[in-house]
């Protein structure tokens, strides 16, 4: 009889897995027995600061990679996730108590990564435009990354809301600070292990676990965060994001949908227009011969 070695769920900042600088952690319960299932790091505002710093540092490198290379890296994440399927299904089942749905969720997540990997060199073509102008200019509009993007992961299901936001944000060339689901944080951190082993440069994705009420105000106020992406219907939260975000004219994107099972529906939870939520449009007037 050997003692089981339990995993320490830590944060994911700058390609590394530190504990919270505050030393704090919280417990999530087993839904059946109500006993503690695991200890999870409770990130502080200083962890958030470190994550934003890492994301800022990673931005020039990630956003200037070729679209093709970003696609390759997303595909690599799908490969690594595929090879760790059983582990994810097991872990999600433990959190939700529903193995069947867990499997569907993991398979959808893998396919969704591949799907967005394919969009890496195509979204520019459908989101970008050539604009007719009545002057001797070639006028065109191209999507560019927003920059450092904060993503508030929905508290529904576990892995799929995270992957469904991460993939379009990454493929568009942004660097990410994600605040994982408060209810289901385990698979977020295990997914960070996938990121860490898939040629994703350090700092491109940072994942914090902890209490949203504590972290969101600091994210919203942070002058070095260019956009915050939220899925849900909490109007007070949206108001807070918009008010605090106004100091540096943050792009605040709030989508009421999808909800619940809809995250698993490809018609409702994946679209090139999701990439559109993670880009800024730049229009160029280029003089041409008269």
């Amino acid at each position: 009889m050997r003692a089981e070695i339990l995993k320490t769920y830590k944060l994911f900042i700058n390609g590394q897995f530190p504990r919270s600088e505050s030393g704090r952690y919280f417990q999530i319960p087993n839904p059946k027995t109500k006993k503690p299932l695991a200890n999870v790091s409770q990130a502080s505002r200083k962890d958030l600061r470190d994550a934003v710093q890492a994301a800022r540092k990673a931005l020039p490198g990630w956003s200037s990679k070729t679209a093709y290379n970003r696609g390759q890296i997303l595909y690599r994440m799908a490969e690594v996730l595929e090879s760790r399927k059983p582990e994810f299904i097991d872990e999600i089942s433990k959190m939700t108590g529903n193995p069947k749905k867990a499997e569907k969720e993991v398979l959808t997540a893998i396919d969704r990564l591949v799907w967005y990997a394919g969009w890496s060199d195509k979204y520019q073509q459908i989101l970008g435009t050539v604009n007719p102008v009545a002057l001797p200019y070639f006028n065109f509009t191209l999507p560019e990354p927003q920059g450092v993007v904060g993503i508030l992961v929905a508290d529904e299901l576990s892995l799929i809301p995270l992957v469904s936001k991460l993939a379009p944000a990454m493929v568009a060339g942004n660097t990410l600070v994600m605040i994982a689901s408060e209810k289901f944080p385990l698979s977020a951190i295990t997914f960070a292990e996938v990121i860490a082993t898939s040629d994703v440069p350090a700092g491109v994705v940072n994942i914090l676990t902890g209490f949203k009420n504590e972290l969101i105000p600091h994210l919203a106020k942070h002058m070095d965060v260019n956009a915050v992406n939220y899925t849900g219907t909490d109007q007070a939260l949206v108001k807070l994001l918009q008010e605090e975000g106004s100091a540096n004219v943050k792009r605040i994107i709030a989508h009421p949908e999808p909800k619940g099972e809809a995250w698993l529906d490809n018609q409702k939870a994946q679209s090139p227009y999701w990439i559109n939520s993670f880009v800024e449009m730049k229009t160029t007037w280029h003089p041409i011969g008269v």
């Binding site: 600091h218 942070h222 002058m223 070095d224 100091a247």
Partner: peptide, 10 residues
């Protein structure tokens, strides 16, 4: 002074 983490942009 402001309670906001700052950006080098400014």
């Amino acid at each position: 002074a402001t309670g906001r983490y700052q950006s080098l942009d400014y």
